[in-house]
Amino acid sequence: MKATVLVRPKDGILDPQGQAVEDSLRKLGFSVGHARVGRLVELEVDAASEDEARAELDRMCRRLLANPLIESYEIELGRSSS
């Protein structure tokens, strides 16, 4: 089953990368604000059901993919770019 995990810097965490992106966009004339840069992990999970896949992905996020102190995560199933 295809899955996508989005990992974001938590609210309130200074994100200098997001700020740099926002500054660049503004310099290009775009009217933007609050840019945040996170991470996207695409993967295939071996699971019998969506519930099982979601539970497994949740364990992956808590163990490795995200650091709960500084990052939040979101799991999407069956939506891969390819």
């Binding site: 965490i13 200074l14 200098p16 990368q17 740099a20 650091n67 102190l69 500084i70």
Partner: peptide
Amino acid sequence: EAGLLPGALLPNASL
């Protein structure tokens, strides 16, 4: 990261 110390280390504010 191992939880043996409190906190986390992030990219420098200056990048």
